[in-house]
Simulated assay, not measured.
Amino acid sequence: MGRSTEASAAGDRGRQTSSNGAGVVTIKTVYAFVPHTLRADPDAESAIFEAECTTFDARSQPSSEDQEPIELWALAHTGRTGHTGYRELVTRFWWATRSG
């Protein structure tokens, strides 16, 4: 399943220039709104997980296989530093394709 929306696409073909005879050039851009669908990238590996300490500039190694190494890193970091706050970072890959 994907999410559909419209995105504007303006290229050189959409730009028009004209002169008013007094040496002033105006540029007009024409936008074309094209429907697109957003889908997960079928060729990408699964999501990539990381944990980041919210107290100090420390981050776990990324893992796409399992979240357990991320959790173990956070617990070990807590044991070493006493820091208790973490942010989970999840990276997923998407493709936007024209649907119209």
Rank of each mutant, 00 (worst) to 15 (best):
M1T: 06
M1W: 04
M1E: 03
S4P: 05
S4K: 08
S4L: 08
A7T: 03
S8H: 02
S8R: 13
A9T: 06
A9G: 04
A10N: 01
G11R: 01
D12V: 08
D12M: 07
R13S: 15
R13C: 06
G14Q: 02
R15P: 08
T17D: 12
S19C: 00
N20T: 01
G21P: 04
G21Q: 04
K28W: 03
V30N: 11
Y31D: 12
Y31S: 04
F33M: 05
V34F: 00
H36D: 04
H36K: 10
L38C: 10
D43T: 09
D43P: 06
A44S: 12
E45Y: 04
E45G: 07
S46M: 07
S46E: 13
A47N: 14
F49R: 15
F49V: 10
E50Q: 14
A51H: 09
E52R: 15
E52M: 13
C53T: 08
T54C: 14
T54N: 13
F56T: 13
D57Y: 01
A58P: 00
A58M: 06
S60P: 10
S60W: 01
Q61A: 13
S64V: 01
S64G: 07
E65D: 10
D66W: 06
D66N: 07
E68A: 09
I70M: 00
W73V: 08
W73G: 08
A74D: 05
L75T: 08
L75H: 02
L75W: 03
A76M: 00
A76R: 02
G79E: 13
R80P: 00
R80F: 01
G82F: 02
G82Q: 00
T84A: 03
G85L: 12
L89R: 15
V90M: 05
V90S: 06
T91P: 05
T91A: 06
R92Q: 15
F93R: 14
W94C: 01
A96C: 11
T97S: 13
R98D: 07
R98H: 04
